[in-house]
Design a protein around this nucleic acid. Structure first.
Lengths: 211, 211
DNA sequence: GGTGATAAGTTATCAGTGATAGATTATCGC
DNA sequence: GCGATAATCTATCACTGATAACTTATCACC
């Protein structure tokens, strides 16, 4: 697959933002076939139909490009969770639905989820420090809706844990553990996926809610 | 920190295995200060006191070196879990202890845990395919002890879930979610760590066990 | 105690990476 | 048409993982 790839036409004067989108799309598409480090800026540029240095007119570094994908993934997750919250009431059934919404998002957009949650950005000099707190801020915003939901359940007297923030962090971890392993270790001999997910949600519900 | 680093003395004839250990030690030490991709083979070689190409006498590729660290991390996890199983009885208290053992391992050896569980090795051409199933096999072995424990609890009639394998996978995911986020997203505004861990284990116990 | 075999290590080099400098070209308002 | 500038290119840099080809220390043996 070494298609020479047609150069896309030069953008008219004010259309830089459009090219930016094309680059991000191309990058996310490529990231689905290999991790962030094995995809090169040259591959991204070729897929976007431009030369490699042209990328740097739109993103200061490769990490910045990734950070932008990260922000957008968080935004989409937040949108989905907010969607669910529209017809939300603090009941066990809705709890299950909310958990399912998160899992659905991760498994239906595994590449976005990987970029947002599973790219190593831990240590000082690297990713997070240089990209400012932008992805982090976006992540926090997505998290807030989750916090509010659990607070509702707590206020309705449905939770075991008397600290709703602790419960939220604990549930988030529980969800992330399942989807991140399903995404990153798909070759593991998992039991049938839907059965596993149903069981997982049931366990989280029993662990979190009374009755 | 650009120490020229004294070259370590040449090993006598049969001592190649010893140098191999030195390389692995040096690599794991470096991986604690940056992710696997930002640490170069030249840095590893310098830390081990040899030239960069000399690495390739001991490991076919950098991925193979990482795979070896992965195998060893799984082995240490298995050792710790087996340790705990020595005085194991299927009770809720011991359940808590087992969960704690896993979390303790991950948080006391975060670098090993990261290499073992959090290095992207998803897609075809890359890591897993080329390193054979060795890390995977080591991982499965560590997992088996876990399976046996949950099966004990199930046999004792203590579990909610009627499928012990499903419960095992679900609990593992629950544990992994917490420790992987604590390790990779340490900058997140977590509540106090011990409180969080205690709450997490309590939630998992309620979700998994009756009463 | 010299001799060849070979393990252990070297230097030099390769193609590919992220990133930068500086020249070039298309599009715009006038 | 004209100057300004956004959009882009080619050429290049230092560094990466990896390989080839050469050197040197250590060994068993006569």
């Amino acid at each position: 697959m070494k298609s020479p790839q047609v150069r896309s036409p030069r953008k008219p004067k004010g259309q830089g933002a459009e090219r930016r989108e094309e680059i991000l799309d191309a990058a996310l598409r490529l990231f689905s076939e290999g991790d962030v480090h094995t995809v090169s800026t040259r591959q991204i540029a070729e897929a976007a139909g431009i030369s490699q240095p042209a990328l740097y007119a739109y993103f200061a570094t490769k990490d910045d490009l990734i950070a932008e994908l990260c922000v957008r993934a968080f935004a989409r997750l937040k949108a989905r969770m907010d969607d669910g919250r529209a017809r939300w009431t603090p009941t066990p059934e809705m709890f299950d639905r909310a958990m399912m919404t998160y899992i659905d998002f991760a498994l239906s957009e595994p590449d976005a989820y990987r970029v947002a949650f599973m790219v190593e950005k831990s240590h000082d000099g690297s990713f997070l420090a240089r990209t400012g707190g932008r992805p982090m801020a976006a992540g926090m915003e997505a998290f807030q809706g989750f916090v509010a939901m659990i607070a509702d359940l707590h206020a309705a007297g449905l939770t075991h844990d008397d600290d709703p923030l602790r419960l939220t962090q604990t549930l988030w971890a529980g969800l992330h553990g399942l989807v991140s392993l399903l995404i990153a270790r798909s070759e593991f001999p998992w039991i049938e996926r839907e059965t596993l997910i149903a069981g997982h949600i049931a366990m989280l519900r029993r662990g979190a809610l009374k009755g």
